[in-house]
Design a protein around this nucleic acid. Structure first.
Length: 916
DNA sequence: ATTGCGCCCTA
DNA sequence: GTAGGGCGCAATG
């Protein structure tokens, strides 16, 4: 009988090579599965050789169990500089185990040992029994195991070649027994084995060939002819010896499983069939049970279990928590959601966490629930302590092999960050939806559940009530809280399964991976940072404005012949147009006179004093109520700063939006308004730095519509409105420049003769004549508009330079008005959206760029569409300016190349107002 | 207590 | 003509 032949598969090594060699496939859940697919087909091939002459009689897959081994104790820099594995490889690691189990093959890993060591132990043991050994790997370290009698070989499945003693002689010029000494001398930059500086593979082989062993080389070092090499060997002898130990494979440990346990029996059809079906590996499935079976398999089965709220678990014991965490590790994908006692994530308390690792498999871990209804006399429900839960969740939520799924993960990221946990890697279903379906509806969980799962989520108000009777989530009884919270995690996971596979199919990966997903932690940090606001200054302004408002009020009432609420547009209209009998009042659709700024300006120009007074009153009440009063209330009592909330999935075009408070609409135009901006200040020893893109939308329009004159003007730095005035009117003066500026903006907004006429104060025919002349001078613009409208009619959406889509269903609307509105949006969205993409790219790169420039004290605080606001220590100002300018100016590259330069204007000052 | 509207602040 | 959010009023529940 032929000798036993043991095949040892280097699973961890294989998956890395497969990842880089194979195309990035996804399985039917949309999870990346290219490497797993490669691994599965390889196993299949090996198993098929079961009865071949040189085929395996015994087989095992060997994996790395832990990242920390005895080598780290020996040398703390071991593998220290290894970059983290690519994000789409990470979730595939646990699937390797699943695949191996599906083949009913043993999968061996051992705490504290690398796969290489386990392979060495088994090889040694098998040789002692007189077996042959094939190591399925092409790792040079493992070549040390090739024995004198050539009973061990390496099998490189990707090139289908076997590597033995001869290969080692060819490649390294030494015998396999000497290979360890060669590896020690040359070192390994990937594993950070130091070796000897200046000694690479060539020199190392040469030295060992000449002197025989590492010790002999080191002993002979002083006599070596080349002075540099000689000195290096003398200086780094200790490193060489350390490296020798690092590359030495451990081969004398007890075997985790006896050799006989690795015997290959038949491969049962189940669970293999189930695995192949689950992954959607149809070609292998076809081989398993005939072609019919594969053909019969639907491409998308979503046999999703129904939502059963009573099956969600409340986790209140350590053992249960461990079980859920283990399930998360095993699944490799876990949905996470946090429940808090307030909406604002900066100061809200963490109340509980929910997890889901499969559809319908979700739990809620209460942490800070009080007695139901906030009853102080009743006892709090038993629940796990915050510190314990965080300590237990941390390894799962930070494990690079477990993909975390969240819905609006920015919120949860901040909550966990506050408790020392940095969630990674992650996907965000809200952003997936935003990048796939912008323009088709909202991206909140309730919207998405309705749209994709046909499921109505338990409403928050059904759990916590509304208004005065509203309770915070910590007062919700545990059973009810579990139903609500676990459902959120369950829904999130199910949404991810639906949305993630669409990303590549619908060409949304680029904007998701490059722009929106990486932006999440950056914006989270900006929100956490907040901005300093001078409360005393705001208070002073409030008082000042308040006094002026009272005086104006009296004068308005006097002029109107009696008191009335000026803030009521309805009554103001009646006073102006009925009581005072002013002319030209026009009523809107709700039957009230319009009293907006154009109407009041018209009256004021006619010399109607009350109109002027009302305008002044309006301005001051606006500033007081919206800004000076409201902002004081927004100062966080803990941090003393104002923390806005940036929404990442609200604007149809890809812009951010800002709420609570909105810091993207702080006044700047009027003198009074600017005083509010001056209340945004830098702390002592710092300045505020404002960096904004100059005329970025016009530049992008020049690029996208390909207008040579405009491109050249931007390249040369000439005034763009002057150029337009010259082209359109043949002369440049204040009047023509102003008109040109209006026209340039009108182009960006989707021009119409009617709208332009209103803006320029000319009749419609004249406006149309100007538009025609513009198109004549800049035919690229005319073409761009025509092409864009064609595109949206055909596809239903338009795209930015980064591939962001804006869907415009209104283009097929019932009325002309609706369709024309969609056309204007179609013209504007690619320009506004590309601008949003570019500044987002700048934001994504900013933290690393600041870090690299040594700007540890500089913090990015705000984004206002084409402007970024930073807080900078005095000592860092000059470097910060240069770094920020470079990042912003080059933000489109390398993914998008623009034919116009991006201009960045930077100012600094003690206040935001002063920085402009 | 919630909702729609008019108005007005920003890019 | 594009994209947002917030305030007060007034009508609805």
């Amino acid at each position: 009988m032929a000798a036993n032949h043991l095949y040892l598969i280097d699973g961890s090594g294989y998956i890395f090579r497969a990842y880089h060699r194979l195309p990035p496939l996804t399985n039917r859940h949309g999870q990346p599965a290219g490497a797993v697919y490669g691994f599965t087909t390889m196993l299949w091939k090996l198993v098929e050789e079961l009865n071949a002459a040189d085929g395996p009689t015994h087989l095992a897959v060997i994996l790395d169990a832990s990242s920390h081994t005895f080598r780290n104790d020996m040398y703390d820099q071991y593998k220290a500089h290894r970059p983290p594995p690519p994000e789409d490889l990470v979730p595939q690691f646990p699937l390797i185990r699943t695949a191996t189990r599906a083949f009913s093959l043993p999968c061996i890993e051992e705490e504290g040992l690398e796969a290489d060591d386990i392979i060495a132990c088994y090889t040694t043991a098998a040789l002692a029994e007189g077996w042959r050994v094939t190591i399925v790997s092409s790792d040079k370290d493992l070549m040390q195991l090739i024995d004198a009698e050539d009973r061990v070989d390496l099998f490189d499945t990707m090139n289908n070649r076997r590597l033995g003693r001869e290969h080692v002689r060819e490649k390294f010029g030494v015998e396999p027994e000497q290979l360890g000494d060669v590896l020690a001398l040359m070192g390994d930059s990937v594993d950070n084995v130091p070796g000897v500086p200046g000694v690479g593979p060539k020199t190392a082989s040469e030295l060992i060939k000449t002197y025989g062993t590492l010790e002999a080389v080191l002993a002979a070092a002083p006599e070596i002819k080349k002075p540099k090499l000689s000195q290096s060997l003398i200086d780094h002898a200790d490193n060489a010896r350390l490296s020798r130990e690092l590359v030495r494979l451990v081969c004398d440990r007890a075997l985790p499983e006896p050799l006989e346990a690795l015997a290959m029996k038949g491969i049962p059809e189940e669970p293999l069939r189930e695995f192949l079906t689950e992954q959607g590996f149809r070609s292998l499935l076809g081989k398993l049970g005939g072609v019919e079976a594969a053909a019969a398999m639907p491409t998308r089965v979503e046999d999703e279990p129904p939502f059963v709220h009573k099956e969600y678990e409340t986790v209140t014991t350590e053992a249960d928590l461990d079980r859920w965490i283990a399930a998360g590790f095993a699944a490799g994908v876990v949905a996470v959601d946090t429940e808090t006692d307030a909406l604002d994530c900066i100061s809200a308390g963490l109340v509980g966490v929910s997890l889901a690792h499969a559809s319908g498999k979700a739990c809620y871990i209460p942490i800070a629930h009080g007695a139901a209804g906030g009853d102080l006399l009743s006892e709090k429900p038993a629940q796990l302590a915050l510190d314990l839960v965080m300590a237990k969740l941390k390894p799962l939520l930070e494990d690079p092999a477990v993909l975390k799924i969240g819905q609006n993960l920015k919120y949860d990221l901040i909550m966990f960050r506050r408790h020392g946990v940095d969630i990674a890697p992650y996907d965000d279903t809200m952003l997936l939806s935003y990048d796939l379906d912008a323009g088709l509806g909202g991206h909140g969980m309730d919207d998405l559940a309705k749209r994709h799962l046909d499921h109505a989520c338990i409403e928050f108000k059904a759990v916590c009530g509304t208004g005065k009777a509203q309770i915070s989530f910590d007062q919700v009884p545990l059973d009810r809280a579990t139903e609500y919270a676990a459902e959120d995690a369950d829904v999130t996971l199910r949404l991810w399964k639906r949305l993630k596979p669409r990303l590549t199919r619908e060409a949304a990966s680029r904007v998701y991976e490059l722009v929106d997903r990486p932006l999440v932690p950056v914006v989270a940090e900006m929100e956490r940072a907040g901005i300093l606001v001078d409360r005393a200054e705001l208070h002073k302004l409030s008082t000042e404005f308040g006094e002026a408002i009272i005086k104006l009020e009296a004068r308005v009432h006097e002029a109107a012949g009696g008191p009335f609420p000026i803030g009521s547009p309805k009554q103001l209209g009646e006073v102006l147009f009925d009581r005072l009998g002013l002319t030209g009042g026009r009523k809107g659709k709700s039957g009230v006179y319009s009293t907006d700024v154009t109407e009041l300006e018209r009256l004021a120009a006619e010399g109607i004093e009350v109109a002027r007074l009302v305008l002044d009153w309006r301005q001051l009440t606006k500033l007081k109520s919206t800004y000076t009063d409201a902002l004081q209330e927004e100062i966080n009592t803990t941090t003393g700063r104002v923390h806005t909330c940036f929404s990442l999935a609200v604007a149809q075009t890809g812009r951010l939006s800002s709420t609570d408070p909105n810091l993207q609409n702080i006044p700047i135009r009027t003198e009074e308004g600017r005083r509010i901006r001056e209340a945004f200040v830098a702390p002592p020893g710092h300045v505020l730095l404002s960096a904004d893109y100059s005329q970025i939308e016009l530049r992008l329009a020049a690029h996208m519509a390909d207008v040579p004159q405009l491109r050249e003007a931007f390249a040369a730095g000439t005034d763009i409105h002057n150029l337009t005035a010259e082209e359109l009117f043949g002369e440049v003066n204040r009047d023509t420049r102003g008109k040109a500026k209006t026209i340039n903006f009108a182009i960006l907004y989707g021009i119409s003769s009617w709208g332009l006429a209103g803006r320029l104060g000319v009749d419609r025919g004249e406006a149309q004549a100007i538009i025609d002349r513009y198109f004549d001078r800049f035919p690229g613009v005319k073409n761009y508009i025509a092409a864009t409208i064609n595109e949206v009619r055909e596809k239903g959406f338009v795209t930015t330079l980064f591939g962001r889509k804006t869907h415009l269903p209104g283009i097929k609307g019932k009325t002309v008005g609706e369709r024309q509105s969609a056309e204007r949006q179609a013209i504007n969205a690619p320009i506004q959206g590309t601008c949003a993409d570019i500044i987002k790219r700048a934001m994504v790169r900013m933290p690393a760029a600041l870090m690299e420039a040594g700007l540890s004290g500089t913090r990015m605080l705000l984004q206002v569409h084409d402007e970024l606001v930073f807080e900078v220590p005095d000592a860092e100002v000059e470097t910060a300016k240069a770094t920020i300018r470079a990042v912003m100016a080059n933000a489109a590259e390398p993914h998008v190349s623009l034919s116009v330069p991006l201009g960045v204007e930077i100012g600094t000052g003690l206040s935001w107002g002063a920085a402009h």
